[in-house]
Simulated assay, not measured.
Amino acid sequence: MTAIRALIGLGNPGQQYEHTRHNAGAWFIEAFARACNTPLRPEKKFFGQYAKITYQGHELHLLVPTTFMNRSGQAVSSLAKFFKFPTSAFLVAHDELDIPSGQARLKQGGGHGGHNGLRDIISAQGNDREFMRLRLGIDHPGNAKLVTNHVLSAPGKAERQSIDDAIDASINVLPLLLQGDSARAMSQLHSIK
């Protein structure tokens, strides 16, 4: 397995989207940056908010694209090209309709599952899907027609707390993931209900 070198959190830019469920991936990066006392700063060449940190002996690049979700690949591919990272060196955090709020799942590779941010990253990386995903559950509204409104709405207080708890649990398994022990990281994270 390729060592993870960059953590990317997907979302939409601007205050109107900041607190919406679709920004759960961005919330993960923001929470991790806060935990590391590292501010994210605008970085034009990576089309996003960026920071470089050393975490438990690992050099990591943190990025929240400031492009819209369906243009996330622009930010990811610019980071990949600049540092000459393979796609497999990325952990991409994103909201996931098929997982209940308050749960998070790690997954290596796979398709985009209809997620526009993942679709654009896969496309921008020449159809390379071999990156690790951190899927942060936001629940499904129950009807496909309600999905857009659901992901672009803010969760209630209790739901937001459950998502934040899942983010904290995800941060707690990062050391295992960075050591290359994805099986144990998944086992630990996936056991949280």
Rank of each mutant, 00 (worst) to 15 (best):
A3E: 13
I4E: 06
I8S: 05
L10M: 01
L10T: 02
N12W: 02
P13T: 10
Q16N: 12
Y17M: 08
E18C: 02
E18Q: 11
H19F: 14
R21P: 10
H22E: 01
W27S: 02
F28A: 05
F28G: 01
I29E: 03
E30S: 09
F32K: 06
A33T: 10
A33V: 07
N37Q: 14
L40E: 11
R41T: 13
K44C: 05
K45F: 01
G48F: 10
G48K: 10
Y50G: 04
A51D: 02
K52D: 13
K52G: 14
I53N: 06
Y55G: 04
Q56N: 15
G57W: 03
H58Y: 04
H58K: 04
L60R: 03
P65K: 02
T67H: 01
F68Q: 08
G73K: 01
Q74N: 14
V76I: 05
V76N: 04
S78K: 02
A80Q: 10
K81G: 11
F82T: 11
F82R: 03
F82G: 13
K84I: 07
A89S: 14
F90S: 05
L91T: 03
V92K: 01
A93C: 11
A93I: 07
A93W: 00
H94Y: 05
L97Y: 09
L97S: 10
I99Q: 06
I99D: 04
P100F: 01
S101Y: 11
S101M: 05
G102W: 12
A104E: 07
L106K: 03
Q108N: 14
G114K: 13
N116R: 11
G117H: 06
I121M: 01
I122D: 08
Q125K: 12
G126Y: 00
N127I: 04
R129P: 08
M132I: 14
R133H: 04
L134Y: 01
L134N: 08
L134A: 06
R135L: 02
I138F: 09
D139R: 06
P141T: 03
P141C: 06
N143H: 11
A144P: 13
K145P: 09
L146T: 09
N149T: 12
L152S: 01
S153C: 02
P155I: 00
P155M: 04
P155W: 09
A158V: 15
E159K: 08
E159L: 03
I163M: 11
D164V: 08
D164Y: 15
A166C: 08
A169I: 12
A169P: 10
S170M: 05
N172P: 01
V173H: 00
L174Y: 00
P175F: 00
P175K: 03
L176Q: 13
L176D: 13
L177Q: 04
G180D: 07
D181Q: 08
D181N: 08
A183H: 12
A183E: 14
M186Y: 03
K193H: 14
